[in-house]
Design a protein around this nucleic acid. Structure first.
Lengths: 141, 141
DNA sequence: AAGCGGGGTTCCCTTACGGAACCTCGGGTG
DNA sequence: CACCCGAGGTTCCGTAAGGGAACCCCGCTT
C-alpha cells in the first residue's frame, strides 16, 4: 500500500512490538527481562524480536563470552521512539485520570518537565491534525 | 499497566485501527468506503468502529433521513492524528525509498510542505529519543 | 411490489496467540 | 569429571481472533 502509515505498521504494528521498543528504550534489553516485564509468551517475543532486527529497528549484541545477547535501538529504531513519546503524551492527556502521568519526561536542553509538541519543520509553528492539507507526493504512484 | 503507551495501545493498538483513523482523517468516513479502501473484513471493521466510538475517538453521525452514518473524529481522536503524522514521517524517511513520500503535508500557517518535528513544550528545542530522562510521575502507582 | 444500496450479522475455516514443557550451549561447583 | 545452572530460545497443543462469503434489515425509489 502506498501509505507511509501502513508501511510503518508493517514494521511495528504487530501486537506487543511498540511495548518491546518501549522496554528497550527504557533499558530493559534482555530476552528474559522483556518477557517478564511484559508477560508476553516466549514464542511471540522471539518472533517480534527477530522481525524488529530484520527490519533494522533493533540490533542484537552479545554482552558476554557466552551466547548472551542484548537488544539495542538502531538509529532507525531510535527515531521510532518519537512515535512512542507522542503516544505517551496522548495517553497522559486522555487516559491517565486523576493520578496523573505515570512517567515524566525531563528535557536535557532545558532541564524541565515537558512533553512532545509537534511543530512544522519549515516554520516552527504548531502542526496538528487540522493544520495541514494532504497532497499527493512523488511516491503516490 | 501504569504506562500511557500501553493505555494508548488499548485504544488504537488493535490491527487496522490506525488505518481506520487515517481513512477517517483523510475523509473516508463511511462503512462501505472504509471497507473497500482497506480490504478489511466487515466483521472486524464493525468491531473496530464500535470500539473506537466507545473509547470516544470517533463519533457516529447520521448523514441522511435513512439510517446512514458517517464516522467523524472527536477532539480526542483528532489529537491522535498527531501520532499518525509522526508515523507517516518515519515511514517517509525510512521506508519510502527512491519514489519519495506518497503524501505531502502542506502546513496552513506557512503554506509550505513540511513534516512534524517534535519539540519540547517547555523550551521549544528539539525533543528526540535521546533528549529526555524518564522519571516516575504521580501516576506511577 | 420489487429492487436497491448502506450498514451491518452470522457462519465456517484458518491463522495467530498463550502456556507450559523441552532443548542447547557454555560456565561454574564438588 | 559429573553435575547443575541459567539465558535464550523451540516445540506442541488448545483456545481466541481474523478473513470470506453469504445473509439480513430497513427505508427509499420506480
Amino acid at each position: 500500500m502506498a501509505c507511509s502509515i501502513a508501511r510503518t505498521l508493517d514494521v511495528i504494528g504487530e501486537p506487543w512490538s511498540p511495548l518491546i521498543l518501549r522496554d528497550v528504550w527504557a533499558g530493559v534489553r534482555r530476552f528474559d527481562h522483556i518477557q517478564a516485564d511484559l508477560g508476553i509468551s516466549r514464542k511471540v517475543l522471539t518472533e517480534r524480536l527477530n522481525h524488529l532486527v530484520e527490519q533494522g529497528v533493533l540490533e542484537r549484541l552479545p554482552y558476554d563470552a557466552r551466547p548472551r545477547y542484548e537488544y539495542h535501538l538502531t538509529a532507525k529504531g531510535t527515531e521510532l521512539v518519537e512515535m512512542l513519546m507522542v503516544m505517551a503524551r496522548w495517553g497522559d492527556r486522555w487516559l491517565a485520570g486523576e493520578a496523573g502521568p505515570p512517567i515524566l519526561y525531563r528535557h536535557h536542553a532545558c532541564g524541565q518537565i515537558g512533553h512532545v509538541d509537534p511543530r512544522c519543520s519549515h516554520c516552527g509553528e504548531p502542526m496538528h491534525a487540522g493544520d495541514v492539507d494532504l497532497l499527493p507526493g512523488p511516491g503516490s504512484g
